[in-house]
């Protein structure tokens, strides 16, 4: 599981030159190996559909649905009314209120400080306060 994670992180590092077929295949492989880890999150009982893997100190808001197939890296924050499935979120990421992410990858240290986003099959990256400034690449 960690092996695919490292490869995906490596792959999205060079944002302008991501191999789309590689990322799809790696994500598929990653999700078949994904186990469940729900300890050490901060929040009041969100909805989880297995498998969901949370690294340490993930903050989760109210009315959040995570899963199936969700990995969230350490110290990331998920705000209220968010729904995430088949998605990898790396460390230190902030996801804004009422986001719906399906089959996405969010690069580490990204901070998406705005509300209401519905994205599928995309890599998201950057620190931004507005949807228009969001850097994304569909795969």
């Amino acid at each position: 599981m960690k092996e695919e994670l490292v490869k995906i992180e490596e792959l999205i590092r060079n944002f302008d030159d991501i191999d789309k077929s590689d990322i799809k295949e790696l994500m598929q492989r990653f999700f078949t190996k994904l186990s469940n880890r729900l300890e050490n999150y901060v929040g009041d009982y969100p909805t989880f559909i297995e498998p969901v893997y949370l690294e340490d100190n993930v903050k989760i808001g109210d009315d959040v649905l995570l899963g199936p197939n969700v990995y969230i890296g350490a110290n990331s924050e998920i705000q209220d009314y968010v729904e995430i499935s088949n998605t990898i979120i790396f460390n230190n990421v902030k996801i804004g209120e009422n986001f719906k992410l399906e089959n996405c990858v969010v690069a580490k240290n990204s901070s998406l400080n705005f509300k209401n986003l519905n994205m599928k099959n995309s890599v998201l990256i950057g620190t931004t306060n507005s949807k228009d400034e969001l850097q994304s690449m569909e795969f």
Binding site: D44, Y45, T47, F48, I49, P68
Partner: peptide
Amino acid sequence: IQINTGRECALNAYH
């Protein structure tokens, strides 16, 4: 497969 509904009192078709 476990679904933890958190604060919801029933499963729904979306789950």
